[in-house]
């Protein structure tokens, strides 16, 4: 279908984008890669009166080294993230998960920031940012603020960005010496995760010193599998011990039932996939 009419502006700086968004008021919307928004416009599920296109804002693209952390610009495409040397060296979990997102053409346009702002619980990157304790950097009419990833996802397709705010980047702490894995279960190529597990593991002397586990599509927002994280701490880095700890993966989660799977099936998947993700991240 053809989208309903809207006005369009393509600012070249963040300041211009923030004022354009403020002028547009409630009926204005940010356009990033368009890989979620364009289908919504075509299906006429969204009717913005103004689109503020961020594609010409150069300062929002690329990855910056800030010493202990990296800042990934919101408009950095999935394609770039997968290949970025800094991301692969310091936060490889993000590159691994992004490589499973959609397909090459979608990854050429879809952006890191757009995937997070969209806040789809089936999206692969929200759980990764939650697992890595990333921080979202937002700029709005009242200036800049940072939001911990754990507080950024409010509900199904809803973030805690305020109206008029733009997600400009994501600060991700560097994790030296950790192992990573993203385990995604989907039915066919290019499909969204039925359940996904993002795991980061630090080993010391054959044991698991520390682990972080984020779950995709196990509720309306991405969640940390805290019970697994504590169970796994100090255990042997061996498949049996990791799978044992993973049996707590569904604790405290509220997974959806939909045509891709029932809630109890998702709980089962979360346990199996968490075991696999931990083992792969621990290289055992």
């Amino acid at each position: 279908m053809i989208p309903a009419q809207f006005e369009y502006t393509a600012p070249t700086t963040v300041d211009e984008a923030v004022s354009a968004l403020a002028q547009g008021g409630e009926e204005a919307k940010v356009l990033a890669g368009g890989q979620s928004l364009m289908p919504l416009l075509r299906l006429r599920l969204a009717y913005p009166e103004l689109l503020v296109d961020l594609n010409r804002v150069a300062e929002l693209r690329g990855v910056r080294d800030e010493g202990d952390s990296l800042v990934i610009g919101a408009m950095t495409t999935h394609h770039t993230v997968v290949r970025d040397p800094l991301v692969n060296q310091h936060c490889a979990l993000i590159a691994l998960a992004t490589a499973t997102v959609a397909d090459p053409a979608v990854r050429h346009r879809g952006t890191f920031g757009g995937s997070l702002a969209h806040a789809d619980p089936a999206g692969d990157l929200p759980a990764v940012t939650v697992a890595l304790d990333a921080e979202m950097i937002a700029t709005g009419p009242n200036g800049q603020r940072t939001i911990p990833a754990g507080e950024f996802f409010a509900d199904y397709l809803t973030s805690t960005l305020q109206p008029g705010e733009i997600l400009v980047g994501v600060r991700v702490p560097k994790l030296a010496g950790w192992g990573f894995h993203y385990e995604k279960f989907n039915r066919v190529a290019q499909a969204w995760a039925v359940v996904g597990v993002a795991a980061a593991v630090r080993r010391a002397n054959g044991n698991i010193a520390e682990a972080r586990v984020g779950l995709t599509n196990m509720g309306a927002t991405p969640v940390r599998a805290r019970a697994v994280e504590s169970a796994v701490q100090g255990t042997q880095a061996a498949p049996a011990a990791l799978h044992e700890a993973a049996s707590q993966a569904a604790e405290g989660t509220h997974p959806p039932s939909d045509l891709h799977g029932q809630a109890d099936y998702r709980r089962h998947l979360a346990q199996v996939l968490t075991g696999r993700a931990l083992a792969a991240a621990a290289r055992v």
Binding site: Y8, A10, G34, Q35, M38, P39, R42, D53, N55, H79, P104, A105, V106, H108, R109
Partner: peptide, 18 residues
């Protein structure tokens, strides 16, 4: 799918103005 500046894109999810 078409190539835009050499990269594949789905031309149904790009605006002509873009």
């Amino acid at each position: 799918t078409v190539l835009m500046d050499g990269s594949s894109v789905k031309s149904c999810s790009v605006l002509a103005v873009q």
